[in-house]
Amino acid sequence: MFTKVLIADDIDFNDLGASQILNELDVHEIQYAKYCDEALLKVKKANLDGAPFQLLISDLSFKEDHQLNKLNSGEELIAAVKKECPNIKIIVFSIEDRAHRIKLLFDGLHIDGYVLKGRNTIYELKRAIQKAYNEEQDNISPELLYLLQDMTTTEINNYDVQLIKYLSKGISQENMETVFKEEGISPNSKSSIEKHINKLKIYFKANNTVHLVSIAKDLGII
């Protein structure tokens, strides 16, 4: 079983539930972080000390307060942690139940498990930790499995999401090629980008790119 685990969550009650499970599983060292930046700092320090964390359990939403942070979401934290510690196992522990967001966590950030906070939280979290340790597949709360069968979820990939995100930031279709090349995103040719945007507009029945971004926000894609 894991011996060193980090819990990133800004609510004490959730920390207590997760720590209860880890204690039952005889995890020797458990650390906590209420901010994403704090969590990343703990990961970096553990690496420098030669005693890296083996598992990160993270929420997705962190409420803003007086403290300024560079990382403000679970997705940003997970991406940063993966760069620092590629072999760490990651379980998301959240109330988020939108299929697109969950699928992108598995496909884009390669998380090792997803637990929906709810009535069966304790049992499901314990099961997810054991599955992550044993490197088992389909490590997700049972009530969410049907969401991932949604046709829209399976047909929208990470590239499409990046494209819509940049459109939502005001990057025009004409300037997208330059931005994608700078960011190392491919395909990045003008024709490929136009083709993907047209595909998305047809798929979502959007009248224009503004309408496309609005639909994507409503569906929780971005």
Rank of each mutant, 00 (worst) to 15 (best):
S214N: 14
I11G: 02
P187H: 11
D59M: 08
Y166E: 09
L55M: 02
F53T: 03
K217H: 14
H100G: 13
L212P: 10
N207I: 13
I11Q: 05
H66V: 12
G74A: 06
L16A: 12
A8N: 02
L212Y: 12
L55E: 07
L144V: 11
L68R: 11
I202V: 11
Y35D: 03
K201D: 06
C85H: 12
I215F: 07
Q130H: 09
T209G: 04
E182L: 13
L40P: 10
L145N: 05
G170D: 06
H196W: 04
I90N: 08
I95V: 10
I185N: 10
N188M: 06
E124I: 02
Y35P: 00
I11H: 12
E177I: 01
K45G: 00
I7Q: 00
D59L: 02
D218Y: 12
V81H: 05
Q20Y: 11
E76W: 04
N175T: 11
L163G: 07
V92T: 14
V27K: 03
K165Y: 08
A33F: 04
D37I: 02
L55V: 05
P52T: 00
N134K: 15
Q67M: 10
N134Y: 12
D150M: 07
N14W: 00
L41P: 00
K63G: 00
N87Q: 15
V27I: 14
L55T: 05
S214V: 00
L60R: 03
E24N: 11
V92E: 06
L40Y: 04
Q137I: 11
G118T: 09
I7E: 06
F62Q: 00
P52K: 01
I91D: 08
S73K: 02
S58Q: 01
S141I: 11
E182V: 10
K117I: 08
I171A: 01
N175Q: 12
D10F: 09
V81I: 14
D107T: 13
V161I: 13
I171Q: 03
R101Y: 10
S168L: 13
G50C: 02
